[in-house]
Design a protein around this nucleic acid. Sequence first.
DNA 1: ATTAGCAATGTAATGTTGTATCCTGTCAAC
DNA 2: GTTGACAGGATACAACATTACATTGCTAAT
Lengths: 155, 155
Amino acid sequence: MAHAHNHTEPQGADLTVAAQTTLEKAGEQWTTMRASVFAALASFEKPASAYDIAEAVSKSEGRRVAANSVYRILDLFVGANLARRVESANAYVANAHPDCLHDCIFLVCDSCGQTTHLDNDTITKGVRNAAEAAGFSPVRPVIEVRGRCADCEAK
Amino acid sequence: MAHAHNHTEPQGADLTVAAQTTLEKAGEQWTTMRASVFAALASFEKPASAYDIAEAVSKSEGRRVAANSVYRILDLFVGANLARRVESANAYVANAHPDCLHDCIFLVCDSCGQTTHLDNDTITKGVRNAAEAAGFSPVRPVIEVRGRCADCEAK
DNA sequence: ATTAGCAATGTAATGTTGTATCCTGTCAAC
DNA sequence: GTTGACAGGATACAACATTACATTGCTAAT
């Protein structure tokens, strides 16, 4: 393995610092608006839609923040690997380790919405290879699994 | 391999017959409306949105068909494996072999929209297994790859 | 033949997600 | 102080999806 993944997930302040560092390393500014959006995004424990975030930021800032501003910032975040889009949920999650790149796998619980995140490079490489074998130049694999999480399954 | 996949893709009339047979075997009716929606869906060479289909059916029937009717029928089709939803495109494709079940992989060209479909049970099993290993009960893997198709790449 | 029930579809309204366009504020370079 | 670059605001709108309720047509029981 190229790098061992201990993946102690940064949380709260640490996570924010990691995000800021990464964004600035990408040559982008860490503005107050971006910080607010990131904080809101990270505060959700489930994938959040742009509108969810707009609402959360509006509340915390005490002024109306429009969805399109949030979209701009989310796009920026996704481009800089600070956030990921969950396609099958039309929603976004903060990326706990923006410094390392993965095609990642999301497990989305249809019952409670809880979404967990796997890194399994064997699988994702398999997907990329299969796509290439079909003459396709893969850019962004979308690998998500809908189902029921352990908690919901236990109930 | 449990069954060899020659997958001579049914087309046109054959495909329609296969669809009808499958739907009826599932205990559902093959109505004229459903036939029209299926025909419209199959006539697109790229994934089609519910609104695309509504428009196509409206034109061919000479009357206005509302989106929600189309959604209902598409949901039915997806349930019966006559069609698949491409999550990352908010669109649907006809399933050329509704009689055999697969978790399938879509390759979606970001440049021309052309979408091809792979069956690779090794990969999809790997995804299901990984999800199960995480305590998750997988129901519906969503495996799609965004990128560029061979044709667009050649240009 | 009438009626009750049911499945399929129609109609209309509304909710959610995503973009486009144009404008304003700030700040640094010159 | 003017200019240029860029973040963000305001507004409108397009695209995607769902909900509630009405209507139609078929079939089975009476």
